[in-house]
Design a binder for these strands. Structure first.
Lengths: 245, 245
DNA sequence: CGGGTAAGGGTCAAGGTGACATGATCCTCG
DNA sequence: CGAGGATCATGTCACCTTGACCCTTACCCG
């Protein structure tokens, strides 16, 4: 039998998918974590995920695990961002995992429906700075996912995936500010989305949001337009010459 | 024994790495392909690659396969861009592969050193339009790699990885034009790299390249500067409102 | 020496960006 | 019911970047 033909001659790995589900609530970037029930890393916080099955693609595995572990059936965004195969990343050995980034506006509401005791949203900043410890190499995976999300905000319609079908411009701005950990000028932000005559990033609905309780003029509600896919996001990430905020 | 503990209960996969080695020669974007010696897809062209070993990371596997199959020891750039796990992607079944993009300026010279009979550079355009047929799902993988390379040209120093330690500005411009399949204005290209007072993308060496044989002023030789990593590439991809070239 | 070729440098107008000021609308509270 | 605060919405202006184009410089070749 020629070399390379029989696949059984080669080392076998378990393949998993791990899902980074991001959300922005009150201007804070959050990630959905679950508390592990089994060894290893029992009772530690971890990214939701699970084993790929032989009869499904990686994308299908990611969507299945997302549905099974969080109840999210149709995420507004899901995309692969990296694969991890360090031999020491799982004490059980030989586990290669593929990371997926998922975004959906209703994470908070959906979580209330599932068993909330072993799953909750954590501020990403707390996890990345070590205040919350994650199992396996999930902190590294989370960091990569956030980095990818920050980059995709600038080149796709990812920001709108954090919000519902209609949203206010300040809600959209808070998404950018939370993911980029930077402040944007309100007036310039509005101009970049509304001004252009031929491009349509947001379409006015004519309706207004409910007043926010803290006073202030009720903002107009917009829906996502069609220009995102062609030209990417009109909002540019500030290139600070010195320090960020 | 608790569920999820024993890894052997779960389906086993073979894990491979496939490497897309790109090069620009005479303004044409090329990819290194090898001719398969074994079934399946015997005698078809394919991306170099091979099986990950249990004691190495994915990155290490990619570098090892790159070295073993092409002789490239220290590529100027190598990065992961995607994982592929369609159950039908390999007729032997259950093979998950991780794609790597590699760029090195000396591909042509290195190829002469290896057994040239079963490895050669092909124009990417010919492969993507179907003139050359690839094994497995390697055409899809190649397309993803080229797309990633085009994006990374704009946000990193990837362009300089196609060239040696010193290069002329027109050589650098041809890299951008080949990967983007678009023409750039020579004067504006130069300005974006040279003009800025505080940033240093290219540093003049004072030396000049050998005359090119077809007449013309011999160009100045530059070395890559340090501003690429901070601010990304100063060259912006043309956003054509209609068709490309 | 003269023409061909490519590098290198300059100009100009149009549009985008950052910073900031001003006006509009609604809430809460006294 | 009016004042003040909060937020949304609009306007202005200087500066920078970008795209398009022209012209000069330097070298090779016949």
């Amino acid at each position: 039998m020629p070399a390379g033909y029989d696949i059984r001659e080669f080392p076998a790995f378990a393949v998993t998918v791990d899902i980074v589900i991001l959300s922005v609530v009150d201007g804070v970037l959050l990630v959905l974590l679950i508390e592990r029930k089994d060894k290893p890393f029992k009772k530690a916080w971890a990214l939701p995920g699970g084993f790929k099955r032989p009869d499904e693609t990686l994308d299908q595995a990611a969507r299945r695990e997302l549905r099974e572990e969080t109840g999210v059936d149709a995420p507004r965004h899901i995309s692969q961002f990296g694969a991890y195969g360090d031999p020491k990343r799982d004490p059980r050995g030989n586990v290669v995992t593929v990371g997926y980034l998922a975004v959906t506006p209703e994470v908070g509401a959906i979580m209330a429906g599932t068993d909330a005791s072993d799953a909750r949203l954590w501020p990403v900043a707390q996890v990345l700075d070590g205040s919350v410890t994650l199992a396996f190499d999930h902190r590294r995976i989370l960091a990569d996912a956030v980095e990818r999300a920050a980059a995709d905000l600038e080149s796709s319609a990812l920001a709108t995936a954090f919000l519902g079908p209609t949203f206010t411009l300040s809600e959209l701005q808070r998404v950018y500010e939370a993911v980029w950990a930077d402040d944007l000028d309100t007036a310039n932000f509005r101009r970049s989305l509304v001004s252009s005559p031929d491009a349509s990033y947001v379409e006015p609905t004519g309706r207004r949001a409910e007043p926010g309780g803290r006073g202030g003029r009720p903002p107009e509600l917009f829906a996502a337009g069609g220009s995102w896919t062609e030209d990417g996001s009109p909002v540019k990430r500030p290139r600070r010459r010195g320090r960020a905020r």
